[in-house]
Simulated assay, not measured.
Amino acid sequence: MTNEIELEALDLAALLCSRVCHDIISPVGAINNGLEVLDEETSEEMKAFAFDLIRKSARQASAKLQFARLAFGAAGSAGAEIDIGDAEKVARGYMEGEKASFEWTAPRALMPKNQVKLILNLVLMAVAAVPRGGSIKVTIEGEPTKPDVTFHCSGPSARIPVAFEKLIPGAIVDVNIDAHAVQPYYAGLLARSCGMSVAAVLDGADVIITARSSAPAPAAEEAPAEAPAVEAPATETMLADAPEAAAEAAVAETTGQA
Rank of each mutant, 00 (worst) to 15 (best):
T2G: 11
L7W: 07
E8R: 04
E8Q: 04
A14S: 08
R19V: 07
S26K: 14
P27M: 08
N33C: 06
N33Q: 14
R59T: 09
Q60R: 13
L70G: 00
F72C: 11
K89T: 04
G93L: 10
E96L: 13
E98M: 11
E103T: 12
P112V: 02
K113M: 05
N114T: 13
Q115V: 05
L120Y: 14
L120I: 06
I140R: 15
E141Q: 15
T150V: 15
S154F: 01
S157Y: 04
E165W: 08
L167G: 02
I168T: 05
P169C: 13
D174L: 04
N176S: 15
N176K: 15
A179D: 12
A179H: 12
A181G: 03
Y186M: 12
A187V: 00
A187N: 05
G188F: 06
L190P: 00
S193D: 08
V201E: 15
G204V: 01
A205T: 15
D206T: 09
A211I: 02
A211F: 02
A215D: 09
P216N: 08
A223G: 06
E226S: 10
A227E: 12
A229D: 04
A234M: 06
L239H: 09
L239N: 14
A246T: 03
A246N: 01
E253D: 14
